[in-house]
Design a binder for these strands. Structure first.
Length: 600
RNA sequence: CGGGGCGUGGCGCAGCUUGGUAGCGCGGGUGCUUUGGGAGCACUAGGUCGCAGGUUCGAAUCCUGUCGCCCCGACCA
């Protein structure tokens, strides 16, 4: 491809001010993407080549384990989503799905994911166990109405994703295929030149039993992952389970009610009264909004030195009540408190907060749903709010094990915690970018959408399902986050838009010009992805651009053209080889082979 | 939705406090010079200063409203 006749590179001299993280800055500066609106980007020709390379790698690996590519619609009828009971949650609750009405007033959603559509189609074409297993996938644009799009392609409202859905006759078959996909994913990310870790994850709104995320480790990542150095354990912080540190026991001499004026936080109480955070039980109040429209107040207790994991809490509440939980919010808004509660001692709440405090005329459930974390329920003596403003008190022999309290894990695991009893390994923490997620959905969707097959025994049974996602555009950006330097991007060769760029330094010199054409054509004829920077610009400009856009190899055609000699430069480590054009192709092929093999 | 910031040519920004009808660098075009690390000189095109009201003889500048964008938080297949 020639720069002059195919597309303007569109590189920028200055870094656009809107971009915060390096990968986003480089994508814009090097002309890969253009912002059209918040979270909406155009993929320029050079970007599309990256996307296509990633897609090809994904297709190769998935096809090799028996997956089949297809293409599904993006405009989904609301009816289908109502059958799976996700319409409300995805529009009213989380509001993650763009939705609209057609001229007849029929409702539609712009697809953020495709379980409903694929399941309904699969149920039509799969009749017998003899046709199983099946796995379909597609690579296309997804839509999500993000509350706050950010970091370029990392969290955008339109993004390209590979999503796959598998169908099985049994849970065992699903589990083994899930493993196979997990392996294929590892191959894919390795083939893309990325360093990833697989972690246990929460399955979120998609639901299902088992779920694993693939993370690119990078400081710019939005997720926290906890892992042991040996690799024996790795999980997303949303899911991670650990043993909390030992609490420091309270002195025997302390008892009764304590005056704690204005001391609303754990820190203030500790500082003013000489306590340790682990001697306090923190009580946080939430309001749970259910799909059945009922609103349930929640009282969550945890040891003072620990933090509540709202994802765990969300899932727990979801299981505790019959209706789907749409939203969980902290109760802290003054108006909401005044409207629904009487003399609410915010900042001084204890685990025994009375149900009477909920106003009779409030729309809330009249009883607190009381939840206590393991870290708090074993304390024999602790400090907590006295349910009276400016007072705390000492709780002794307080029993959480009455049936009023649900005891469970609602705690954030953290760096330094032990993984489990009898294992001395400590958790470490890193930031990660989620680029892949696989789920064992089980029969959740097939049940709702009535997707059945005839099994060996002649019985109609629900299909077992798995679903598997890869963020294609996210991979591209994550790769830059992991592979760049002061000068710009350093693409892993596997997903670079071009393998090599030919840079003639002076096209006015007929010898250089002839040699350039000769070299370019040799590479073209040998099916190498080569870009020819045939712009009539100064050499320095072309060098800078080549470095910025990050092509792994540069061939400089210059002064030594008279001797049929050129330079082959490796972008990443800046090594230069001066070689004659006779040996150029062979040398390039062996050098690039090394690079392909090292990274994949 | 809460907190903070910003909207001035394609990009990065100044001007606003103290009103007088727009400027700098990069980029674009033309010409000459230059030619292995984002060149030099000259000429040139390009902006109703986000939008709408208001104050004023006069508004990019002051006031009110509104829209948009970015960052932090909440939220997150």
């Amino acid at each position: 491809m020639r720069v002059t006749t195919s597309f303007p590179l569109g590189t920028l001299r200055d870094t656009p001010s809107e971009a915060e993280i390096i990968s986003h800055q480089l994508l814009l500066k090097a002309g890969y993407i253009r912002r059209v609106n918040s979270g909406i980007y155009a993929y320029m020709p050079i970007m599309l080549r990256v996307i296509e390379k990633i897609s090809t790698i994904i297709e190769r690996e998935l096809n090799s384990i028996g997956c089949t590519k297809l293409l599904l619609p993006q405009l989904h009828p609301a009816d289908l989503w109502k059958k799976s009971e996700r319409w409300e949650g995805y529009t009213a609750g989380e509001g993650i799905m763009f939705n609209l009405k057609d001229r007849q007033g029929k409702e539609f959603g712009l697809a953020p994911t495709h379980e409903e559509v694929i399941t309904s189609i699969a149920s039509e074409i799969i009749n017998s166990y003899k046709q199983l297993p099946q796995c379909f996938y597609q690579i296309q644009t997804k839509f999500r109405d993000e509350i706050r799009p950010r970091f370029g392609l990392m969290r955008s409202r339109e993004f390209i994703m590979k999503d796959g859905y598998s169908f099985h006759s049994s849970g065992n078959d699903l589990a083994s295929f899930y493993e196979k996909v997990g392996n294929a994913y590892s191959n894919i990310f390795k083939s893309c030149g990325l360093q990833t870790v697989g972690v246990e994850a929460d399955s979120g709104a998609i639901g299902g039993a088992s779920s694993k995320e693939f993370m690119v480790t990078a400081d710019a990542g939005e997720d926290s992952i906890l892992f042991t150095e040996s690799g024996s354990y790795a999980a997303n912080i949303e899911k991670a389970v650990s043993i909390p540190s030992q609490p420091i026991p309270l002195k025997d001499s302390i008892s009764g009610v304590l005056e704690t004026p204005q001391q609303k936080t754990i820190q203030e109480v500790c500082k003013n009264n000489n306590f340790e955070p682990s001697q306090i039980v923190k009580v946080v109040v939430f309001l749970a909004k259910l799909e059945s429209k009922s609103e349930v107040p929640i009282l969550a207790c945890i040891r003072g030195d620990q933090h509540i994991n709202e994802v765990k809490l969300f899932n727990l509440i979801n299981n505790l009540h019959n209706s789907n939980l749409l939203k969980l919010q902290k109760i802290e808004d003054k108006n909401i408190i005044e409207k629904n509660l009487v003399n609410f001692p915010l900042g001084f709440i204890g685990p025994d907060l009375d149900n009477e405090i909920i106003k009779a005329d409030s729309g809330w459930n009249k009883k607190w749903t009381r939840i206590v974390d393991h870290s708090a329920c074993n304390l024999s003596k602790f400090i907590s709010g006295a349910n009276k403003v400016n007072f705390h008190k000492v709780f002794q022999e307080f029993s959480f094990s009455s049936k009023d309290y649900t005891i469970d894990d609602i705690r954030n695991a953290k760096k330094g915690d032990k993984v489990k009893n009898g294992n001395d390994e400590e958790l470490e923490e890193k930031k990660g970018i989620e680029i892949g997620h696989i789920f064992q959905l089980g029969q959740k969707y097939s049940e709702k959408l009535n997707a059945k097959f005839s099994d060996k025994d002649g019985q109609l049974k629900n299909l077992w399902m798995g679903c598997y996602g890869i963020g294609v555009t996210r991979i591209a950006q994550a790769a830059i986050e992991q592979n760049h330097d002061q000068k710009g991007i350093c693409w892993p060769i596997q997903i670079s838009p071009f393998e090599v760029i030919v840079i003639p330094t002076n096209l006015k010199d007929p010898i250089q010009k002839d040699l350039t054409e000769q070299v370019y054509n040799v590479f073209l004829n040998n099916k190498i992805d080569v870009l020819l920077d045939d712009r009539d610009d100064r050499a320095g400009v072309k060098f800078k651009d080549a470095e910025l856009i990050g092509i792994p190899f540069q061939i400089i055609i210059g002064r030594d053209s008279v001797n049929k000699e050129v330079e082959l430069i490796c972008r990443k480590n800046n090594t230069k080889l001066k070689i004659s054009t006779d040996k150029l192709l062979k040398t390039f092929i062996s050098e690039s082979e090394i690079m392909y093999n090292r990274d994949s």
